[in-house]
Nucleic acid binder design. Structure first.
Lengths: 212, 212
DNA sequence: GCAATATATGAAGGATTCTTCGCTTTGAGG
DNA sequence: CCTCAAAGCGAAGAATCCTTCATATATTGC
């Protein structure tokens, strides 16, 4: 994802044996659980290790420090989200703009809400983490995928396509996060999601008319 | 704002003399500065006190603990933002939907970007702060203001007004935050802001046609 | 079975941080 | 000027936390 994870944040070594892979997995999972159950300020190397059923020393064999662990966790997460969005985009090449927007919103929304707990945990972990590069890489990856999809639309949009696309993503990403953090009732969430699709669709339609 | 700041987060006492007011102000300002210069994980009672030019003991005379300080800071901040949005809403009663949306986006955007540093600092401080109630109160306050404005529109929108309004706010709040955190170049920010207005306007127009 | 590696352990050092409390200084009212 | 309450001070106790390293165990390749 981020081609060059900043030196100081990159993992110490990769697992070479099977058990090491398991250990790593356990550590990641434990990190999420601690984050959820205790919050960021109680996310302690000791606590994570304990929950993962390993010793602290083991953790430090893979990560030079706590930050690196969180960084890796976010990297993994963003990677799966990006993959799902890319998949949805590819599957809708050549469709109508409306179908594309709906597919995009749904893919992103579902990737985020499917395991809402994790999403929330990671939104929290991100503070104080030098992950701007990570976010940027993610954004560009998704941007590329949606751009490619949109130009292939049967009713392709006119105007400034690049700006259109950037705006679309900023709005979708932002709205999802907002809805998330406010922890609105599921019904309201569903409603907003539906409205968000309509909003994006009408936006693109308007863009087509005025600039196209 | 939040009618009942949770007991454990409410300030210890209010200033009664002039110098105490100054001290409090200095503490708040110092908190922001430390947050900006050092980040959340280095936001220390000692550091804040030092920067404010007071002693740690003094801080604890007003706040029972660090969290309460951050809580109060956010409360103040959200209050000023809400005020500005309310003002803009009132000033545009009776206008056209398009004018309203533009005024709303501008008011919120400017309230956030005018001192972008503070906004960013507070976005960070919020983690690990039990401020859901605060956010909720803010949202409802703004919701009320914008609802009142929109129903007074010369070209009032039909359909589910409540949902429309909630969506609008989720989108605007979310987008602003997203743009913020990605720290995009000013030019791009301006472009997106403009597009956001267009998007909201076309959404409302579409809502008027289909459900009205 | 035997090196050579890869993994895992966890006590302990070193560094911070939060918060308190006994005491001092300042301001307000009479 | 005097007294009381408000405001301010900051060293020190108690609690964590991060990270290392010397040691121990497991795996692999041969």
């Amino acid at each position: 994802m981020a081609a060059t994870p900043p030196r100081h944040l990159s993992p110490r070594k990769k697992p070479r044996q099977a058990r090491a892979t398991l250990t790593l997995e356990a550590i990641f999972e434990a990190t999420i659980q601690v984050l959820l159950a205790e919050g960021l300020h109680r996310l302690t190397t000791t606590r994570v290790a304990e929950r993962a059923g390993v010793s602290v020393g083991t953790m430090y064999q893979y990560f030079p420090h706590k930050q690196a662990l969180l960084y890796a966790l976010n990297e993994r997460y963003l990677d799966t989200v990006a993959e799902r969005v890319e998949k949805a985009c590819i599957e809708h090449h050549g469709a109508s703009t409306a179908e594309m927007v709906e597919a995009l919103v749904n893919a992103y929304w579902e990737a985020k809400t499917e395991r809402a707990d994790i999403t929330r945990a990671l939104y929290r972990s991100v503070v104080e983490l030098d992950n701007e590069a990570l976010i940027e890489a993610f954004s560009q990856r998704v941007d590329a995928a949606t751009s490619a999809m949109l130009v292939s639309a049967s009713d392709a949009v006119g105007g400034d396509r690049r700006l259109c696309n950037t705006t679309l993503l900023a709005v979708i990403f932002g709205t999802v996060r907002n809805v998330f953090e406010r922890n609105l009732p599921a019904a309201v969430q569903a409603d907003i999601r539906c409205q968000l699709v309509r909003m994006c669709v009408s936006y693109l339609a308007a863009a087509r008319l005025s600039d196209g």
